[in-house]
Design a binder for these strands. Sequence first.
DNA 1: GGGTATTTGTCCGTATGTATT
DNA 2: AAATACATACGGACAAATACC
Lengths: 257, 257
Amino acid sequence: MPDPIWLLIAEDLQLKIESGELGRDGKPLPTELELQEAYRASRHTVREAIKWLATRGLVYTRSGQGTFVRPRVDPFITRFVPSLESAQAESAAFGVAVRDRSRMPSVSPPRVEVQRAAGRYARELRIADDEAVVSRHQQRLIDDLPYSLQTTFYPMTFVERGAGRLIRAEDIAEGAVSYIEDVMGVKQVGWTDRFAVRLPDANEVAFFSLPDDGHVAVFEITRIGFDESGVPLRVTITTYPTDRNQFVMQFGQVPAD
Amino acid sequence: MPDPIWLLIAEDLQLKIESGELGRDGKPLPTELELQEAYRASRHTVREAIKWLATRGLVYTRSGQGTFVRPRVDPFITRFVPSLESAQAESAAFGVAVRDRSRMPSVSPPRVEVQRAAGRYARELRIADDEAVVSRHQQRLIDDLPYSLQTTFYPMTFVERGAGRLIRAEDIAEGAVSYIEDVMGVKQVGWTDRFAVRLPDANEVAFFSLPDDGHVAVFEITRIGFDESGVPLRVTITTYPTDRNQFVMQFGQVPAD
DNA sequence: GGGTATTTGTCCGTATGTATT
DNA sequence: AAATACATACGGACAAATACC
C-alpha cells in the first residue's frame, strides 16, 4: 500500500517549506488552484495535504487570503528558582523571571469569586467537599502580550480569620502569600508543583490567541503551598501555551548562567 | 454567520460522548452512514465532524471497524525529588519513582554512538562545535509498557580519561553519573532541568504508539549535570508522551504525602 | 463605501480502494 | 468469499472572508 497522494503532496510541501523554497518572509503558499495544477490532483486532495500540515502547526490558513507558514517563535523561558529564603521571593517570582530581560510584566485586576470547593480543589486543600473557597483569577502579561492565566484558591475561613483583602478585587502587591503570613501568621514553608499538559479551554484559546484546531496545548501547573504544620493554604493553577513557553528548574550547585 | 453543520454535529457528538450516551464500554459510535441519516448530512460533512473530534483526542477511528471513544488514561506521575544527598540518588530516580507503586521498571540495552557535537549539544556541554561526543540512547519501560526515551551525551574525552564503559553498549547498573565519579573523580553536584513540549518524531510515534495525526505531543526534558567547577559533564534528553504523564516537583518543607 | 476579483470554507454527490470481521 | 466500515480521490456548487480598486 503506497502512501496516499495527499501525504506525498504534504511531505513535498513540508520539504519545500523547510528548505525555504516556499513561504519565505510571510509570503503565502501557492493557492489551492495552483497546487491542484502543480500536482494534478483534485482540490479535495490538496486541501487534505494542507490540513495535515496545519494540524502539525507548520502552516495556517486565512480565509480569503491563503496559506502561510507559521513563523517559529523563540520560546520564553521561565525559571523556577528554589529560593527558599522566603515565601515572598516565590510570590514575586513572576516579576523576577521577567525583569532581567528588560521586559515589562503586568497583571490584570483579579476576578474574585466565592464558591463551594469542587472535588479536586477540596481534595488538594484538604477541606470538606462543600466548604467555601475564594478564587482569585488573574491574567498576566509581558510587554502587553498574554503570558499566563492564573487562578488561586484559598479556604474561605482565611477571610473570616482576618485576610479580608482576599475577597477584594484588587491586586495584592506584596503577594497574597506574604499578606496571609502578615495578617494571620500562617507561613508558607514549602510547595509542590505539578506539571501537566492539556487542551486549552475556550477562555485560554481567546486570551492566548491560540489556533482553534486544538493543536496547541497548554501547560497546567498546579502549585500547592503548605504551612509549617503541613496544611495546604492555597492551590494555584497557572496555564501557559506550550508552543512558546519552557520551564527551567535547578537542583544543587549550578553555575550562574 | 451560524456555526457550520459539521461543527454542530461534532459538538452534539461530543455532548453525547461526555454524557455517556455514545461510546460506552468501547462500543463504537454510529457508523458514518448512520450519522449521515441521523443528521441528514453528507458523508463528507459527517467525516469533518469526526475529524474534529479526532484531532482533539476525543475519538479515534479504525479502518473497517468504526469510530471509538478514546478511553481516558489516568496519568502516570513522576516525582522529581531534589534529594541532594548524592548524585547517585538522582541516577536511580527512575527506579525510585516507580518501585513504590509495585510496578516493574526496565531499560533496554543502550544504543551507543560516537558523533561530532551538533550545535545544540556542543553549546550545552560547552565544548567546541566539532568535538566528539558519546551518545547513549535507551528505551525505558514500566510493566513492559513504553515509558520514556532517553539519550545522554558525554564528552568523548571522558572515554579517553578512563570512562571506557561509556562506549560499551551495556547498561551501567549503578548509573553512569556514579560511574564517572568513581573512575574519573568528576562529581555531579547539581543539574538543571528544562521542560519543553514538542511534536513527536517518527521514532517516538512508533515507540509510544502515538496516533499519527500528531495531536499528542511529548515532553522533552533536558537535564544538564554540572561538576564542582561548574563544568557540564553530560546532557540528558528524555521524552514522555504528554497524554499520560505528569511531573511533580517540591520545594521547601512539604508533608510526606 | 461599494463593487469585484481572489481565495479559502462548507457542502453535496459519486466511485473505488483497503482493512476488518 | 462476502459484508461492513472507513480511506482516498474525483467532480461540482455556492458561501464567506479578504484585498484592492
